[in-house]
Amino acid sequence: MLKKPLKTAFMQGFIRCHDCGSLLKSDPKCLCPVCGHHVSARKPNSVQYTLALIISALCLYIPANIFPIMSVTQLGVAETHTIVGGIVALIQSDMVPIALLVLIASILVPLMKLLGLSLLLLCVHYRWQVNARLFTRLYRVIAFVGRWSMLDIFMISILVALVDLRGVAQVIAGPAATAFAGVVVLTMLAAKSFDPRLIWDHQLSYE
């Protein structure tokens, strides 16, 4: 249905409004007539913001994995779990599918987001000639999976509320929960501030 590809809108002197999608004549510092927001050809300082957010997330990723994310007291015996420890405990009690789910949501997804966004930034900064379609797809996956990392945080909030029998059975959230929540929020913001159009801008051929 779509006709043959033209050049990018920016090269032809158009800017797409980030919010409402209306196409406007290139004019820096103008406001979109439809939604009233500032328009710019690309998200301003996209690379810098994304890099800063990734570095902050990386800093929080270390305490998130070292410190205990929750401590479980059963019959007076307290036991602290890190993120990895919780997964090991699930495997030991023969709940492999759930363990796999938590492994994906709280270890693989944040790691993949940090590595993937770094790869995208490197690609933009060094103007690599890559399969841009594939890299855009990588960006889409990163942007989509981000929120699912909150699984661990929600699970802890439910456990903390339900298992609250002082001395006998109690679940207390640990310091890693805050750090991990920070990682999730920062990587989500990083994915949001990255502009995938930058990948395409430096490609010499559009294959």
Binding site: M1, T8, R16
Partner: peptide
Amino acid sequence: YVACPECDLLLNPVVPEPGDKAYCPRC
């Protein structure tokens, strides 16, 4: 015209039928 929000390709707008989908041909 419309532009693709993820690769900035300039496109002729289409009006797909309800239930159909229109994808950017490039990205």
